[in-house]
């Protein structure tokens, strides 16, 4: 009787990569729900187009590389990237924009580096940035909340048609709260809040967007509960952002950048904190490192939002810190058992 020769351990836990990815997808649902309620089916259309492109591109590249396509597609990682892109891109944006973004994310930012686990940059964010810089106009046309524009939220079919340019509905776009703050020129915040309709229908961060962020916050907490990731990165990011906002909030003058609450619940903050920053492949590795990483993302995010060129800057902040992650790793090793203090990764040992 010939026995197998295996290396210990012989028993295995229940975790699986596909399981992790599926849990992440599940956690996106509350946020997506809020988006659909306020902005219509635009994001769902986005997700569908992105998913088809992403999976198609991934399959094609895997085939080119001679790898078993089914095995690699089953880890759901391409799907997660597609969903995140779909959520991040503006609703009702043209279909080719989504295709370009998905292609860039999967092929350029992930497969060309070796596939899952080898990419130094967050693929969804790379796709987002590429289309943001290449096609600035479509990327700034955000749908206004339906409570705001008065227009009924578009149905799924209408959303599809809009994406393919077959429908011409006017007036559904509106400036986002972050846009408004950036373009604010002379009005005190309280006055801004009074004058702009978007703030009337929302309490802190504008109509629709508050609920979206709350939705993603809920999803993030669920992921924490499931121990998909640790609290260090998202909490540090929010802390960094809040600290900067608190530091530079001068009570709401015309030059102020917005209160911490405003920043936390507007734009893509919560999506970024719990779904982008926590992407394990491109972030720092140790818990100490994740604190530094998240904190710096929060700070960078505030800087770009208030003093930079873009109203929202999750993508840029995250990509900048992706550059820094290996360096952060060198200096944030944990203290191992039996050592008096943590070591530097670059130490030369005898």
């Amino acid at each position: 009787m010939a026995f197998m020769r295996q290396s210990s351990p012989h028993s295995h836990g229940v975790n699986s990569t596909a399981g992790v990815m599926q849990t992440v997808l599940l956690a996106c649902i509350p946020g997506l729900l809020a988006m659909t309620v306020y902005f219509g089916f635009g994001n769902i259309v986005n997700i569908i187009i992105a998913a088809i492109t992403a999976l198609g591109c991934e399959a094609a590249i895997l085939k080119l590389r001679g790898k078993p396509v089914g095995f690699y597609l089953k880890d759901y990682s391409a799907l997660v990237t597609a969903v995140l892109l779909g959520l991040a891109l503006p609703a009702y944006c043209p279909w080719w924009l989504i295709v370009v973004a998905s292609f860039s994310a999967i092929v350029l930012a992930k497969q060309l580096y070796g596939g899952l686990g080898y990419n130094p940059f967050n693929p969804a964010m790379v796709g987002y940035v590429i289309v943001l810089i290449s096609f600035p106009l479509p990327m700034t046309q955000w749908a206004g909340a339906s409570t705001l524009t008065g227009i009924e939220p578009l149905s799924f079919l209408q959303g599809l048609q809009q994406s393919f340019g077959l429908l011409h509905i006017d007036g559904y776009t509106a400036a986002t709260p972050l846009d408004l703050l950036k373009q604010n020129d002379g009005l005190m915040l309280s006055q801004l809040y009074q004058s702009e309709a978007v703030f009337n229908h929302g309490s802190v961060a504008g109509a629709g967007w508050e609920w979206v962020n709350l939705g993603f916050l809920l999803g993030g907490l669920y992921l924490l509960y499931k121990k998909i990731f640790t609290w260090h990165a998202p909490v540090s990011m929010l802390l960094g952002l809040g600290l900067m906002a608190a530091l530079f909030f001068d009570g709401g003058s015309s030059t102020s950048g917005g209160s911490p609450l405003f920043h936390w619940f507007s734009g893509a903050t919560m999506l970024g904190a719990f779904f982008i920053v926590t992407d394990p492949v491109s972030s720092a590795v140790s818990n100490k490192g994740r604190i530094v990483y998240g904190f710096l993302i929060g700070i960078t995010l505030y800087i770009i939002r208030v003093w930079g060129n873009y109203p929202d800057a999750i993508a840029f902040a995250v990509l900048l810190m992706n550059f820094a992650a290996p360096f952060i790793d060198y200096y944030t090793l944990p203290r191992s058992y039996g050592h008096s203090k943590s070591r530097r990764a670059t130490e030369k040992t005898e």
């Binding site: 975790n15 990569t17 992790v20 880890d75 990682s77 596939g115 899952l116 686990g117 080898y118 121990k227 998909i228 990731f229 640790t230 394990p280 492949v281 972030s283 590795v285 140790s286 818990n287 790793d329 090793l333 944990p334 203290r335 191992s336 058992y337 039996g338 990764a345």
Partner: peptide, 21 residues
């Protein structure tokens, strides 16, 4: 499969090492 650097191994290590690294 590929290592996704999730860090679950680091959480589990009794010697506080970084298994993914």
């Amino acid at each position: 499969q590929a290592c996704i650097r999730c860090g679950l191994c680091a959480e589990a290590c009794p010697a506080s090492l970084l298994p993914q690294q």
